[in-house]
């Protein structure tokens, strides 16, 4: 397994990237979940892309997927599953933000980190989500995951 192999510098780069992406998503999910759900419902509703019935469902599920998927990726637990989940979320967010930018709302805060968290415009988040999407797709294709909880659990 990976534990016997000497780690290359590139392994540390991917480790840092995995931790950074995982932390970002976990933080974004946590910030939304500790706020009243109506705040995020209002953010989702403002995109004007979803039916009224769908808005509460999205507002109640997406933050949990961000928190759990992000934490799994951060720790390196079930890395294929978590990188696929986070990659899919990032792709969905990119498409959503792309539509928002096309509608002329690129400078508006995207509400990605909850209302009391970091404020980033839709333009900035669109680029970040695309980068996350590409990185997650690459991570998904790895055969081993050094410096991860997964590697540690498999070795024991």
């Amino acid at each position: 397994m990976t534990g016997e192999k000497k780690l290359a510098w590139v392994d540390f780069v991917w480790f840092a990237l995995r931790v950074a992406i995982g932390f970002t998503f976990a933080y974004a999910g946590f910030m939304k979940l500790i706020e009243p759900i109506e705040n995020f419902e209002s953010v989702v509703s403002d995109y004007d892309l979803f039916s009224r019935d769908l808005v509460p469902v999205i507002a109640r599920t997406v933050p949990w997927i961000e928190l759990i998927g992000g934490t799994f990726l951060l720790l390196g637990y079930a890395p294929k599953f978590s990188s696929a989940t986070i990659g899919a979320l990032a792709l969905a967010f990119s498409m959503l933000l792309g539509a928002s930018i096309l509608a002329g709302k690129g400078e508006k805060s995207c509400g990605c980190f909850g209302e009391s968290g970091i404020k980033l415009s839709a333009n900035h988040m669109f680029v970040l989500d695309l980068l996350v999407c590409i990185s997650s797709a690459r991570m998904y294709l790895f055969e081993s995951f050094p410096l991860s909880l997964h590697a540690w659990l498999i070795r024991r």
Partner: peptide, 27 residues
């Protein structure tokens, strides 16, 4: 995948859920 692997995942999710509900109660 061993039982221990799934149990670890369960513990992580449990801790996260507990953290969210504790923070909500505090706010």
């Amino acid at each position: 995948m061993s039982k221990k692997y799934f149990f670890t995942g369960f513990v992580i999710v449990f801790v996260l859920v507990a953290a969210v509900f504790s923070a909500r109660a505090a706010f």
